[in-house]
Design a protein around this nucleic acid. Structure first.
Lengths: 158, 158
DNA sequence: TACTACTGAGTTGTGCGCAACTGAATTGTG
DNA sequence: CACAATTCAGTTGCGCACAACTCAGTAGTA
């Protein structure tokens, strides 16, 4: 570090960028800890919970479509869905129209879990004491950031 | 969704917080993809890069102190540090004062990597095109959120 | 001093995330 | 029609994150 000179705008920017990325990483993990605890009665991890939310909301989904909704590829989804299937929450079957595609849907017991799952966001909200306006603002910032990062990630191939 | 009735406050809140956590998760992964690409020439992952940043800034650190700085426990740090040691970037030795403690420091080659690493945040900044005001705001929101989540996680034990 | 409690690092096991790959089914094109 | 290119799901391998545990070293206490 140059002790005598003022930090330049560029240096401040780099520092800020690093702090934002690290803060994002930490906030995501801290949130994970809250959900891990709130979800342990259901026997679900957070990614499994997201998959069930998608199936509850949309009904039957192909692995591909589910991956688009959750931003996950088959390398992550296939084993996750196998675990949900082993737990009896989900059914998988090849599509008759396109034999490459696998259709995933909640079983009766998976659908029944939805009732119990409504407690989860209530519990999370209770424990975190959210400020609605702040969360709305945060969501907006995160959405814009993710869009820009995705664009930067794709643009790299040019 | 009940098409005829207004969503209740509870439904709004739940919907909102679900999106925030998911948005956080996605933004963190999108950032990870950018860093993964920017770091591949250095042969470092993002968590390894964070560990090197801490060692460059503070010099020799115990595993415990490093874990406090990065918010990681020995279950994550021990194998990570072993990989950095195998790559020749880091040295580990038992403390003479307290034989339980292991002191970690950058080797000559680890220190040399610092020069090359200065390109990383430049590359990330170039590709993401940050809005400084937005990033500053995001950092603040994320910090407050993490504090609240940590407090909620610890408070659970009461 | 002996005994207990605690601390710090490491190990094991599980699940997520991602890259790289395989293999089967489908689509497009000559 | 035949053959190449593409699509979709799954597998393998690696690293991170975390819980639960072990073990050695240290500190506190009767």
């Amino acid at each position: 570090m140059t002790a005598t000179s003022q930090p330049t705008d560029a240096e401040n920017l780099l520092r800020l960028e690093h702090q934002v990325c690290f803060a994002l990483h930490n906030a995501s993990r801290a949130f994970g800890a809250i959900y891990r605890d709130a979800l342990k009665d259901l026997g679900l991890t957070y990614p499994q919970y997201l998959a069930m939310l998608a199936l509850w909301e949309h009904g039957e989904l192909s692995v591909k479509r589910l991956g688009e909704l959750l931003r996950l590829d088959s390398g992550t989804l296939s084993p996750l869905l196998k675990r949900l299937e082993a737990a009896g929450l989900v059914k998988r079957e090849r599509s008759a129209q396109d034999e490459r595609s696998v259709l995933v849907s909640a079983t009766a017991s998976g659908a029944a879990l939805r009732e119990q799952a409504t407690e989860v966001p209530l519990e999370v909200a209770r424990r975190t004491g959210f400020d609605v306006a702040e969360m709305r603002e945060l969501r907006g910032l995160l959405g814009r950031l993710t869009d820009r990062l995705d664009a930067a990630g794709v643009a790299q191939e040019c």
